[in-house]
Design a binder for these strands. Structure first.
Lengths: 137, 137
DNA sequence: ATAAACCTTAGAGTTAACACCAAGGTCAAG
DNA sequence: CTTGACCTTGGTGTTAACTCTAAGGTTTAT
């Protein structure tokens, strides 16, 4: 299978596949005489793994770690894999908390603003941002 | 006030202040003979506005928009300001939803994995990512 | 008068995950 | 035998918000 076919099968671009190769996520199984990358079912599976890891929120770097483990599973422990997962989970939760803080502040700001067509001279959003204690009132 | 003093007052780096200047968020009120940036209370206030906007989740670009409006408020409406705020709010909520999806998948994966020191040969996390329908089981 | 602390500019580096481009080689069909 | 679709490499561009560096000028304290 050439790169374009694999890309079409997976719904990604050929650039993406080459990018993943550069970053040690997926190598073609062979090259044709003329230098074309050739892939087979193994690579297809591996790409599906990568895309699924992505869906779950893993970065390419983390996915790469998981792949390293996967290639010789018996040299690695469940502990390691779960460690990576929990670490990511922590990070995701922290980010969610941060964004929820933003959400709270923003909705508070929006709720108090009339949003009308009159001039912004007394806009409650602007004054809240101006006042030192604006975010806590 | 020279740049270093203002930076110390605000707890930011001088680089940051210069960066904000480049991006039209804050200009010094004057320059000394030798070319040093000079700031006064107005700039201090403005930086506090910027930092508060940041705390609330606004990007520098959005903050810049808010500042544009603030400088001549009576040429702008509450509608505009609230528009920017609501748009940001939407974005934040969308991002939260996405991350919550990750969170759900990751915690499901983590929960099912023993996390022990035994080899990862049968690690449920790896197999879930291998199986096509792994994320939905 | 000299060292330390401060300031200047311009420009490069960082992170993530690609997208896009140029210049050219390859392959199948008509 | 020539289009057109495909492939190659190597390189640049994108976004955000800075951070760091180099090479040099200024100020202040001793």
């Amino acid at each position: 299978m050439k790169i374009g076919e694999l890309a079409r099968l997976l719904g990604v671009s050929t650039d993406t596949l080459r990018y993943y190769e550069q970053h040690n996520l997926l190598s073609p199984s062979a090259r044709s005489e003329s230098g074309y990358r050739l892939y087979d079912q193994t690579q297809l599976k591996q790409m599906q793994f990568i895309l699924r890891a992505k869906e779950v929120g893993f970065s390419l770097k983390e996915t790469s770690e998981l792949l390293q483990i996967k290639v010789d599973k018996n040299q690695h422990s469940c502990e390691e894999v779960k460690g990576i997962t929990l670490q990511k989970l922590e990070l995701v939760r922290a980010r969610i908390a941060e964004l929820q803080c933003f959400e709270k502040s923003l909705s508070k700001l929006a709720k108090r603003c009339c949003g009308g067509q009159e001039s912004a001279d007394f806009c409650s959003i602007l004054t809240a941002l101006e006042d030192v204690d604006g975010t806590h009132k």
